[in-house]
Amino acid sequence: MKQGSMNQGSMNTIAAKVHSPMNTFSWLLKREFWEHRGGFLRAPAITALIFLALTLMGLATVELTARRFDFNFNNLHIDQITQHIANNDIAQVGTGVDVALLSLGSPIGIVLFFVVFFYLLGALYDDRRDRSVLFWKSLPLSDTQTVLSKVVAAAFIAPALAIAAMIALHIGFLILLSLYALLHGINPLPLLWSPLHLIGLWLKLVALIPLNAIWALPCIGWLLLCSSFARSKPFLWAVAVPVIAGIMVGWVNLMSQLSLPNIWFWHKIVGRCLLSVFPGSWVNAEAFKDLARSHGNPGDMLGAVLSLDSVKALLTSADLWVGAAAGVAMIAAAIYFRRKRTEAYA
């Protein structure tokens, strides 16, 4: 009796709590972050630290070598070189800084690719292999919510954290460079620190996240589908199916002498399925061939790639939207298999 009345009381307090689907979804995202802190947060952070350390080592080497040999370059001391640059067009230097910062951040992009690729391959497979799927399925979570939380983690959370690491790396790098400049009695502020310029660059990086996400949908969809479908070895499924399909298409082309170039399939199907989670990989799309050709030097090209025109070109390309539609279809298939499959072989 006593127990009965206690339960009545606790039931009333329970009923008062609100559990909206959005709330549940944010818990699912937190869950993904908890499980993958290592890949999402630690991997880009460690990469950033490594490259800061390399920068420091590089600057120290330059400094020591220059001192030991009293290094001359066209009869200019090294501090005079920087002074010379300072007298040049600051805008040119700004582009140079952009190029330097972006290439400095590119290893984080590469790390992000591997993290996201293997995250997606394991997302709907690992918990079936270790049977913890039975715990998740014992909670009131729909399979659609679960799969979508993994899409969002791969498309937004991991890239956002990687870009945060990139920005931290940029700031650290500029601080090191400024200290080096100060060591030579040069004021680094006008040269390296133009706040509007830097914030503009970072905003562009952040603004590219949704664009990257749409572009990556076929890859996200394909990897999740393999992860959800495979009873074992999702990696083999993910790679072997498109590669064998590519070889078959090539063979059929060879046999029938069709005019469709073989490279088309590799580029548009195999490449998109496996590699389009690589940040900024849309730069290779058709829409960019002309843009890239019209700009000779890397600084201009970079500016063009990050410009509004290029984003417009991508947003109006069939490549982007056909791929996105295929990605959405594959995500739907992944949800279907998530509902059906709870087993996997180790």
């Binding site: 918990d127 049977r131 913890s132 039975l134 715990f135 399925k137 014992s138 009131p140």
Partner: peptide, 15 residues
């Protein structure tokens, strides 16, 4: 699953 709970066996909590 709002009304039903289950414990599948001892080893299913994620490690």
């Amino acid at each position: 699953m709002q009304q039903v709970c289950f414990i599948a066996d001892v080893a299913v909590l994620p490690r």
